[in-house]
Computed example of a mutant assay.
Amino acid sequence: MDAGVAAVCGALAGSVATIGAALATGWSQREGARISARAEHLRQRREPRHDVYKGFIAAVSEMNDATRNVRAINSPRIEHFTDEQVLQYKRAAGVIKAQWLEVALAGPKSVNRVATRIKEASNLIAIEAEALLIIRVAPELLDRHQGGRETIQGVKKAAEDLTKWLSEFTELAQAVLDSDGSKGAA
């Protein structure tokens, strides 16, 4: 091989190597930019969810605290449901409902399913407790409703469910917030 052919082959090899390096660098930069964009998207998604979940947990915790006495008593009676308590249940249920809407929009579905159970349990607590007030002030209803025992047990069970689902919601919310967004993550 003469010197001219060797020079051309050397130049060609150098050009191919340079083009290969440029392609690899371009691919690497695009991949790095894609990873950065994904991380920023996840951060922007995580921050609002954090605030939404925090508000929902606070609202449910308020209802949970309000129903502590009902859960603690083996056989609560109608006298345990005061006007103030029922008003507190109704307010807490209203706040939970408003916060639930935020959770439903923030997602994902797994968290929303548990949040919906919580919302329904809190509504049941408020409605059943209000029914107990009506039963208490209308003595003719008291006998027909066996002193409100079934309604009281309904409130007690809903309050117990609410406690269980609050724990489940908190665990799911933590998993969602810790997720890196990869396939199979919450």
Rank of each mutant, 00 (worst) to 15 (best):
T151S: 07
S28N: 15
P48D: 07
A3E: 11
H50S: 12
G4W: 03
A66L: 06
L141I: 02
R136M: 04
F81M: 09
S182G: 06
P76M: 11
G4I: 10
P108M: 05
R136T: 02
K97N: 09
Q44P: 03
G148L: 03
M63H: 11
P48T: 12
A7C: 05
S28F: 00
D180T: 14
C9K: 15
A129R: 06
M1R: 07
V86T: 12
N69H: 07
S61C: 01
G20W: 02
N64C: 04
Q44V: 03
Q88S: 15
E31Y: 02
L177H: 06
R91V: 13
A17F: 01
D65H: 01
K157F: 02
I19L: 15
V137T: 14
R77G: 07
K54F: 00
Q85S: 10
N64D: 13
E79Y: 02
S15R: 04
A138K: 13
A3P: 02
A173F: 02
Q153Y: 05
I35V: 09
L177F: 02
G148A: 05
Q146H: 09
V70M: 09
D143A: 11
E120N: 07
A39E: 13
T82C: 04
L12H: 08
A121F: 03
G55T: 04
D180W: 01
R136A: 04
E62Q: 11
R68D: 08
I57R: 10
E128P: 00
G14V: 04
R144H: 09
Q44Y: 00
M1E: 10
F56G: 06
A138N: 12
Q99V: 02
P108S: 06
C9V: 15
A37Q: 15
E128R: 13
A92W: 00
F81I: 10
I57P: 01
E150I: 04
H80L: 11
A104K: 15
I127E: 14
